[in-house]
Amino acid sequence: MHHSIEIEQLYYSYPDGHQALRGVSLHVEPCEKVALVGPNGAGKSTLILHLNGILNGRGQVRVAGLPVVKENLGKIRARVGMVFQNPDDQLFSPTVYDDVAFGPIYQGLPQEEVRQRVEKALAVVNMSDYLQRVSHHLSVGEKKRIAIATVLSMDPEILILDEPTAGLDPRARRSLMKLLENLDITMLVSSHDMLMVRELFPRMVIMDDGCIVADGPTQELMADEALLNAHGLEKP
């Protein structure tokens, strides 16, 4: 039995010298849903980018039982589905089908299997009718769902989302939350949306200035108004 995510004493500095992570340790159990909160510049996105080896800091990172080292990156990227904040960065093909099929095609799956994976992933995000649509023309909410489908088609063990509800109108936000709630998969989500965090995530991790400053049950941490205020957060 392994943890889904194990991070021990992770340090990272950007090439311009800015120190973004100062000794972060974090463990996430399989099928646990964890929210990562904290002010802008706290290091949330930097931390997330270490989970599939896009960034490489000092310290130990193990994901889905594999150490994040060069030889494992291909396997890790197939197991970690990373959904970025701006869905436009993730959708770069003429049709929705091509975008969702990218991961399976890259892995070398046969055509028929690719098709099945795409259909399944689109069904999960309730976008089955969008197969031949042009990604560029979709609304932000629809693009977010397609972006999630582009990683679900890889059958990942872990889903990582950066600000999933940013820029969504209330209806799109609500339907995206419903989607996240129904996904039975390990999930690490960075967000400023405290209402969503309270509703969906039993566990919450607060980051500030490159460190984890609190980690515990969301109910408890949300009740500690002094803690939230100290790190630029607001009680929902």
Binding site: S93, P94, V134, H136
Partner: peptide, 8 residues
């Protein structure tokens, strides 16, 4: 061109 032709 394929992307632009589809979208615009």
């Amino acid at each position: 061109l394929a992307l632009i032709y589809a979208a615009r």
